[in-house]
Design a protein around this nucleic acid. Sequence first.
DNA 1: GTAGGGTTAG
Length: 447
Amino acid sequence: MIHLKRFNSLLQRSESKLVYVPMSMCHKAQFHNNNLKQPKPNQTLKKYLECNNHAKVLLLFRTLLRKKPSTFNSIDSFSCLFALKACINKKHSSIQGKQLHALIMKLGYESIIQLQTSLLKVYAEGGNLFDAHQVFEEIPTKNIICWTSLISAYVGNHQPNKGLELFRLMLMNKVEPDQVVVTVALSACADTGGLEMGEWIHDFVRRKHRMKTDLCLSNALINMYAKCGDIVNARKLFDSTRNKDVTTWTSMIVGHALHGQAHEALQLFSQMNTRRDMTKSSSSNFIVCPNDVTFIGVLMACSHAGLVEEGKRHFRSMTEEYGIEPREPHFGCMVDLLCRGGHLRDAYDFIMQMPTDSNAVIWRTLLGACSLHGDLELATEVRHKLLNLDPGYVGDSVAMSNIYAGRDMWNKKIIVRNQIKQSRTPGYSSIEAGKVVGQCITSNDNI
DNA sequence: GTAGGGTTAG
């Protein structure tokens, strides 16, 4: 990091013909030279970004920072913005965000609103909501984009209730919502099961004729209705949506799958592919191809309907026909499919052959199935795996306790139950009362 | 030349 005093002296060097723009003018702060030429490095940074080569962006930015004083001027607010964008979607984005934040302050760019919102996003991507919120608070004139970024930060970090709280606060601050912020708010409603709020937002969109509606908003509405239990309205909206994209189809397929409507989900998947084949032959620009998330919906549908062979076929076709590599959720769906179908040994073999490391949740799916089918031998083996992966999870003891009870092994059951009594935590359910709230219930209801 | 959004198992 370059020291501020040294940096200022660099700016004042006469031979470089730079002009230092004071902080008060930072809303249009840039460095200029006499020829008014754009600095070349920014074009390169932008090109790297367009190619999604984030590592190269950061490497070049670092090189520019470390260059000789006479060339240091090539860094301006746009360079910082490109560097920030390159930090988004990175594991350690919060740390890199902090470094860039410090640099932005040193360069006097902290009041440039585009940099502030990008910084907020970088912190949020790294899960650092404290600093993300702090950046938001320090923006003197918060526009709709700033609000959207903050709400999205909370929704994206599994705090949809806080996101909705901020959405309400935004409305109280008389900031006019647009189609982007309502899309985020609808996503929060879907996550919390907040149908009432979702319906209110839908009504608001219909009343605001000036608000642009686009496909993202339509998809968010379909998803909200499906997740909040109103599958009929979700389907109505889906049917009335023209030019559906992959998210439109996927949202509806997942919606049907979650409602146990496997036939409808698989029929939609089939329609989606028929349409793809038709558009392919007509060389249309609007080709909708299933993606990895679509297949999660398809596998869920098969799993919930007990369609084991069909699920296996789709799982195979995903790689063989569509070239999509399965990820953890796909393996999870397959284990669930085999378990629900009663193929417990197959599920065990499947987990053992998975190319990724198995996790506690996948083993727990199998343990639950062992409990349901009273398979003590396999359950004991699975329980052993779980004790290594996640020893403190009470639910696993409950499953074992139920298996012992089913086998009239009362002594063993009492031992496990006594262990549970020492460590149990209360369960809770949620109700919607203006907003969705968690309501604790007594721990006895858990067992 | 610059900032915000939708689909993901159990």
